[in-house]
Design a protein around this nucleic acid. Structure first.
Lengths: 215, 215
DNA sequence: TGTACATCAGTGAACGCGCGTTCACTGATGTAC
DNA sequence: TGTACATCAGTGAACGCGCGTTCACTGATGTAC
């Protein structure tokens, strides 16, 4: 997928160069969790990586360029979010399990990639097309999968025809993403993870199947 | 509530001054809908208002200060979001109506204040306490109201005791806020408002009452 | 194994832009008599 | 009604900081013979 790593001026990077490049990405990732995106300066990233700003520019056009690369890696990883939904039955007990697994996977993924996801959300909200695409890539896979599930249940007569599968799936995914990115907010607010997860799973199940889960 | 309007150096502003101040706020508001928050410069706001940057600093410490004032006005307005829920029954047909009204009110409010809400979300996401508080002020009123509703239904035995009222209300409100701020996204994606609203109302109703609405 | 040369990798220091912010000043409005 | 003075309101122009970015250079690593 990723071809040869090249410096900005076109040279092919060797071992040493790639290591430096990677170190810059790692340091940037780390900094994103501790300070707001806008406050991250090239100089700070470079210094943290034990190198100089000029070196940074050998590998990235600017901070945003480096951030996008981190984000794309994360998005590729996020494609796996739907694995848990493949060939699952949403009828009976296994439906409840599917809902729980989806919620678990979603919240975990979000927590693992909290910092970069916040930046992606920010960029997307500000109207940056590239961040918007990355965000879509992650959410679409889940949304599409859920849309298909609803449509299938509808064709079997298990869900009202009048429900818009796409609207339902989209709303649920938007909810998961919103709650996931405010997990801390919920906690501060007195809602424990242990309450949050089953509640989200309940809503997902209600939304997808139209009925309460069989536990 | 708002006391006398004063300039930064402590003088009381007269009619003319207040008008200028308001014009600056209006222009800023307008600019927020067309360009990303971070790209709004004092100079541009001032020029758009037909005045000079030095004047801007007579009334506001910086752009953020002015933005916060716009946001606080909006938040005060948003307190009315719960009016629609006061003394409503969630049983039977009126429950379905309540869910619809809530969704309508929410989406409309969000659309009316799209630009400033995006900035508030952004600031809050970046960890700015003041924006976070404003966001909370708006969402809390709705969340609290819904939490009370669920608890009431629980005490009447109409909703399972095991449901966490706070988690449920919080999740639903997070969903509404998320969907509202991505309304355009849904449209681009092929989901029409006409499908979105009933779907959200359905989810709200399912979440609050645990059962399908009687239409 | 040693030497010479090519290429890779990294950098200190400075340049310069953009913008936030302020200063010293001018003009407008209000008020007292 | 007119004049003088106080205060309100607004501003052009410049200062200066912070930072992104680059240049000309040094050092490290690899390779050919």
């Amino acid at each position: 997928m990723t071809g040869q790593v090249r410096t900005v001026d076109g040279r092919v990077a060797g071992r040493r160069g790639q290591a430096t490049r990677q170190k810059l990405l790692d340091c940037l990732s780390e900094m994103l969790s501790s300070s707001p995106y806008r406050d991250v300066k090239v100089i700070d990233v470079a210094r943290k990586a034990g190198t100089s700003p000029a070196t940074f520019y050998q590998y990235f056009p600017d901070v945003e360029g480096a951030v996008l690369e981190i984000a794309e890696q994360m998005a590729a990883d996020g494609a796996g979010l739907t694995d848990v939904l493949a060939n699952r039955s949403w009828v009976g007990k296994s439906g409840w399990q599917a809902a729980q697994d989806l919620v678990d996977g979603f919240l975990d993924f979000w927590r693992r990639n909290e910092a970069i996801l916040r930046v992606v959300d920010l960029g997307a909200a500000e109207g940056d097309k590239r961040f918007y695409k990355i965000r879509m890539k992650i959410l679409n896979s889940v949304t599409n999968s859920l849309t298909d599930t609803v449509k299938e249940l509808q064709s079997k007569g298990k869900v009202d025809k009048e429900v818009s599968a796409a609207a339902m799936a989209g709303s649920l995914v938007a909810m998961l993403a919103a709650v996931a990115s405010h997990q801390k907010g919920f906690q501060t607010w007195g809602v424990k993870q242990a309450e949050l997860k089953p509640n989200l799973a309940l809503l997902v199940h209600l939304g997808i199947t139209g009925r309460k889960p069989t536990k």
